[in-house]
């Protein structure tokens, strides 16, 4: 704060801008933090451009190597796994279906649940909300066995339905939408009532368009969350053609039979590929999201 105490209210042009040491300190910490977070990703990226023997011998690589193109091509298009039926493209499509289904499903379900809780007077509405809310505390893993049992009995193993539907119920989403709906002015509902809008009409024509920014935010969170699901797809899918990217990376590393060297390079490449869509989604929707927040006016 030294500069603050000496700063005069009249701007005096100085030859050299003074160095603000507290600012420098702040930035140093931020940059160090960013590097710390980025380093593993960066190492994966650089290592993914080497052949397996180099990686096996030399470990992680800090510079780009010559085999990048080949590794990425292999990761995307070479049929892998035990059965040699599934390539990167297939896994990416599976991940995309899971991520999108997961996000869209969660948004639809949680919006409707929140709508019911906020706008309709049920006798046990509040209790229902708190029951939903407490499930926030329970991670997916707690109920993974019963869920598996149910899906298996329904014969939904190795299907997209089985992959997505059991995960769709969302306490987080319901909670966020509830808070959002509560912030929508009461008069809007009353105006709509006078304008002759029924519950469905009000939901579709007023509430959903108003929630755009909220939907975008939840979509980002849920898509990334769904994309990164590991345990559930691992349990659910035994058929390799149903594998997701996250599941596939592990599969490559498991092919370590006899004297074979695992496909390190390809696995790294696949990891980078698996990372890209969520990053794109975040970047893409973020600008949208900020714009929506700035313009929002109720």
């Amino acid at each position: 704060m030294t500069d603050m105490t000496t700063a005069s209210p009249i701007a005096v042009p100085t030859a050299r801008p003074r160095i603000r040491w507290n600012r420098v300190g702040d930035h140093a910490i931020l940059i160090a933090g960013a590097l710390f977070m980025l380093l593993p990703v960066l190492l994966t990226l650089t290592t993914s451009t080497f052949d397996n023997i180099t990686i096996h011998r030399g470990g992680l690589q800090f510079a780009f190597g010559p085999d990048g193109f080949e590794n990425y091509q292999k990761a995307m298009f070479e049929k892998g796994g035990f059965t040699k039926t599934v390539d990167g493209m297939r896994m990416m499509m599976n991940s995309l279906i899971l991520g999108l289904g997961f996000a869209v499903g969660k948004i639809v379900i949680s919006m409707m649940a929140a709508y019911a809780i906020v706008y309709f007077r049920f006798r046990f509405g509040t209790i229902a909300f708190w029951i939903i809310f407490t499930t926030l505390l329970l991670p997916l893993e707690v109920r993974i066995l019963p869920s598996y049992e149910v899906v298996q009995n329904l014969g939904l193993l190795n299907t997209y339905t089985g992959l997505i539907v059991p995960l769709i119920a969302s306490a987080t989403g319901t909670f966020y939408f509830r808070q959002f709906f509560k912030s929508v002015p009461e008069e809007l509902l009353e105006a709509a009532r006078i304008d002759g809008a029924g519950p469905v009409n009000f939901f579709i024509n007023i509430l959903v368009p108003l929630s755009q920014t909220m939907i975008a935010a939840i979509f980002i969170i849920m898509f990334v969350y769904g994309w990164n699901q590991y345990l559930w797809p691992t349990l659910m899918t035994t058929d390799e053609s149903m594998f997701t990217l996250v599941r596939g990376i592990k599969q490559i590393m498991q092919v370590w039979i006899g004297a074979n060297i695992p496909d390190y390079g390809v696995a790294m490449a696949l990891a980078i590929i698996a990372m890209t869509p969520p990053v794109l989604i975040v970047i893409l929707f973020q600008s949208w999201f900020v714009k929506g927040l700035v313009e929002s006016d109720k």
């Binding site: 008069e187 809007l188 009532r193």
Partner: peptide, 20 residues
């Protein structure tokens, strides 16, 4: 009778226009 069928119209203090 439902508000919409009462043949009335209402202007609110905060206007309650649909922002979108």
């Amino acid at each position: 009778i439902d508000p919409a069928k009462r043949d009335i119209a209402m202007v609110f203090q905060n206007y309650a226009l649909y922002p979108h």
